[in-house]
Nucleic acid binder design. Structure first.
Lengths: 234, 234
DNA sequence: ACATTGCTGTCAACAGTGTTGACTTCGCCG
DNA sequence: CGGCGAAGTCAACACTGTTGACAGCAATGT
């Protein structure tokens, strides 16, 4: 054996990046619930505890992984209006939290904001300043937007990533409410057929409310008639 | 020993209710993270596995516990305006999710809505019908409200229940943003002193946006001037 | 009144998890 | 070539939820 064993070049050395690659692959294929240290070791063909030479503990690894997944920016068509651009960006952000709720929770708990989160804040603040909001108002609105995006994303993730398939059967859910005792739940029974609307539309609906308020804050009074594209979209 | 052993009356028998009492006590005093089957057993002075005679598994126990904690209704002063009442109710609901995030997540994942959740939906739908919203609109708005309340509650819980105390040091967080490279993060640096506003105010701010939109939907055009009690305190 | 039957509690154990310490091996640098 | 530190391996610990076999109590049927 002169140089390298050459039996398998796929195992050159362990590395933060290689470990994160493996972890990302596992998350993508099997979900965060399956991401254990032993599983990472198996994916790398190495001993599970070898990972501890590169990451202090699992949390540190997960935070790095989250920052990597949250750092990807969407490329939007350039000819969008201010409102459409903002809306698309918020929806994209929400979907990031939606598809990786466990990682999102870790990012939320982490005190030092990671670079990807700081970049998102800067982008949003720039858009808000663009239409004339003061730094004070922009900061207030930013927190509302963050609540909206992160909160809704987490909530949707819980609904959709639950083990029980009945969670996604909205017809069955509506039926449950339709069959409630009409004496005790009169309004729920009547509204039953319209409950559990499409989640994407619901998110956009709420986003429009926020954008309306922002435009009113910015002094553009012509938004008082309501959102312009109500009910459009996928 | 004629009747009962009388050596210790504190251990009459195990019971779903007694177990839930113990679990609730543990959650209140030590948090959900400390709620293990063995800990419950110790609290009851019984073998941990005895719990499995009354609950199929830990999830079932937690869901029952969640429904109990979420079933408590707030008693509000009766002389509140429609808007104030709704606002107070939403804030109370949000704080429930905020103080018991782990239980809230379990409720969200559970397909069959529990009685407490159904009661909340009925209450909200009644308030929306009260001001003239159609069942369709009420159902749409209800989903938005649910996103707002549950999402924000979960998000706030993550921020506040994190282990690291720096999470609650908003001054430090602001300082981090103030010290970012001004070339790359111009707006973030300028807005830094105003970032991370009070979370309760932020929630109310967003609630006002939604209530404005609701009143506009209900045809009461006089809400176009904005919310009436903006910035009112705790 | 007795016997049976089923529910309740106990014990030991299993399959997982993250993590640590000791040991070995590799690679680089003097 | 020697040595020294980083990297990988192995066994083990503490902890989790959960299960199956056993023992005792209570109520029930005859």
């Amino acid at each position: 054996m002169p140089d390298t064993p050459a039996e398998d070049v796929s195992r050159p050395r362990l590395d933060r990046e290689r470990i994160l690659d493996a972890a990302e692959a596992i998350v993508r294929e099997e979900g965060v619930g399956r991401l254990t240290m032993r599983r990472i070791g198996a994916e790398l063909g190495a001993d599970p505890t070898a990972v501890y030479r590169h990451f202090r503990n699992k949390d540190e690894l997960l935070i790095q992984l989250a920052d990597r997944l949250f750092g990807i920016a969407p490329d939007l068509p350039p000819d969008l209006s201010w409102r459409e651009r903002f809306k698309a960006e918020l929806r994209y952000s929400m979907n990031r939290y939606r598809s990786h709720p466990d990682l999102a929770m870790l990012l939320a708990v982490q005190p030092d904001d990671t670079p990807s989160l700081q970049a998102i804040a800067e982008w949003d603040l720039a858009r808000l300043a663009e239409i004339g909001l003061s730094p004070e108002d922009a900061a207030r609105v930013l927190q509302v937007i963050e609540n909206h995006v992160v909160g809704t994303g987490l909530y949707y993730a819980l609904i959709e990533h639950g083990d029980d398939p009945r969670l996604r059967d909205t017809d069955a859910m509506r039926r449950v409410y339709a069959l409630l005792p009409a004496g005790e739940f009169p309004h729920a029974v009547v509204a039953a057929p319209h409950l559990f609307p499409d989640l994407d539309e619901s998110f956009d609906f709420a986003t429009d409310m926020i954008l309306d308020a922002i435009e009113r804050l910015a002094g553009k009074g012509d938004a008082a008639t309501g959102s312009t594209d109500e009910g459009a979209g996928t």
